[in-house]
Amino acid sequence: MKCCLLCQRRKYEPFSFAWLFSLQSESDALLCQLCQSAFTPLKEKICTGCGREGTYVNYCTDCQRWLQTGISELLYNRALYRYNDAMKKYFEQFKFAGDYYLRILFKRELARFLRQRYRQGWLFVPIPVTAETATKRCFNQVEGLFENVTLHKVIYSKIKSKKQQSLLKRRARLQTPQPFAITSQDQSRLSGAKVVLVDDIYTTGRTLYHARAVLKAAGVAQIRAVTLAR
């Protein structure tokens, strides 16, 4: 592909003699260097509880608050990228404008990450969307992003519609009631299982901890989380 998927401008890749003799195919990068550099990967120096960037003695203040609410164990979330302006724009185009094709930007990387970190015996469970979103958007963005791994859709959304999360303030978001339930036929499969929750963005952690609560009630032993952005 000649053009960058986000800015539609032609990609200019440095051409060298070393590459000519390396017998490697042309790089299959989807983005130009400028667009790619706008996304900041989160590697080291993160909070081990939620994947937020920065150095923390124990956990970040958010995670400590979650511990105070009486949760036995944190989700130990890992996010691949920081939620910055470029990521915000990406989600606007992908989720809200509905360009489903943009899922291919990150799906390979997410699948590789999941396979490396959670090798065997883990079930990957996506966060569902409400029925209203499903009919409007015609896709679940989480299932699109994690297309390359086998997903077990055991959670469903029991409310019909909800307000867009990004429009709510932090406190309002934390007070949202439990929106999820477990499909009845999967109840038995879950007891004693190990589950990785996957989602697109971790902001306050409210959604993921709601999902965690229903899974815990179904008897899941260990629950972790992986998101694209934090």
Partner: peptide, 22 residues
């Protein structure tokens, strides 16, 4: 192929900015 939605319909990637048409 690139404009396929999970429920088997297509959307128009060209005029997406005017609001998505499937």
């Amino acid at each position: 192929k690139t404009a396929l939605l999970p429920h088997g319909q297509y959307y128009c990637p060209r005029c997406l900015n005017f609001g998505r048409l499937t």
